[in-house]
Amino acid sequence: MTGVTERTRTIAAREGAGVIQVQAELVATRPVGAYQHLTFVAPGIADLARPGQFIAVAIGDATSSKLLRRAFSIHQVTPAGTYGDTVEVVVSAAGAGTQWLTAQPAGTSIDLIGPLGKPFPLPTSPVPCVLVGGGYGSAPLFWLAQALRERGCPVEIVLGAATHARLFGAALARTAADGVTITTDDGSAGVKGWVSDVLPEVFERSSAAVVYGCGPMGMLRSISELAAARGIVAQVAVEEAMACGVGVCMTCVMPIADDDGVTSMVRSCLSGPVFRGDRVRWDAWTDGICHVPDDALGSPGWAGSDPLPEGES
C-alpha cells in the first residue's frame, strides 16, 4: 500500500466532517461496453462511504479552465489492505470533462472529494427489494445489493439501457442478486422495451417492499409511480447538474416535499441524491427544465413572496 499512497495526498480531512478531499491516483482504467471503469487509490474515502453516495472529481490540474467538479456514483470501495483504499466509478464520456477523465492513463493524479450525499437507506427487516438501474445508473447497485443481502433481504435486479453496450454490470448482477431482468430499447439484450414494462411483474413475483432506482430522471419517475400504486417504498438516486457537489452553490436543487407536504427547492448534493420517490415533484419537469412549483416555499406564486424579476445570481 505504501508504494501507491506516496503518490496520493490528503487535501482536507476535518474531524467529524465525514467527507475528505484527496489528491487521488488513478490506478486502473478500462473500457466496459460504452463506459470507462476507473479505480482510484483515495485514502480514507472507502471507510466513510455507503452505497448511493458519490464523489466529485476535479477536471484537470489546478490551472484547468474547467472549474466545476463532476459527480459520479461510487460503484465500489475497498478499504485499506493489500490493494487498499480504492474507490471505483463507471463513467460515460459525455461532454468535455468526462471525455478528459476517461482519456487519462493509469498513474494520473486526480483531485476528488467524497463520499458526498446521503446513501440509500437500508430496511431494518429482511424484506424483498428490487434494484433498478438505467445505463451507468446501475453502477452503485451491486454494492447496495451486497449490503441488502447481508441483512437477509432477497434482491432482484433490473437493468435497462438503450442498447447492449450501454448496459452496465449484467454479469455482476447475476452474482449480486437472486433474480436478474434485462431490458434494452432496441432489443439487443434481454427484453425489448423499458424497465417500466417489466417492473410490474418483477414487483409481483418478488413481493417487493422496497425499490431502489438509479438512472435517468424519466425512469426514476416511472419507478416511483409504479411503486406508489402498489404501496412499495421507492428510494431513487436523482441526477441534476451540479457545480460544486458539496452544498455551497445552490445549483443542484429540485422540488422535494417534506413530511408535512411542504415543497421546497432542496440541494440534491446534500439532502440527496437519494430521495423517496413519492417526495420528488415529478410534475415540475418538462423537456429538461425543472420549474419551481407554484406551491413551493418562497416561490414567486407562494404567499408572502415577491415577484422574481430577470437578473443574476
Partner: peptide, 12 residues
C-alpha cells in the same frame, strides 16, 4: 424565504 429559479441554474 426565496425558492430561487428553476434548473438548469448553471452552465460551465
Amino acid at each position: 424565504p426565496q425558492s430561487g429559479r428553476g434548473t438548469p441554474r448553471m452552465a460551465e
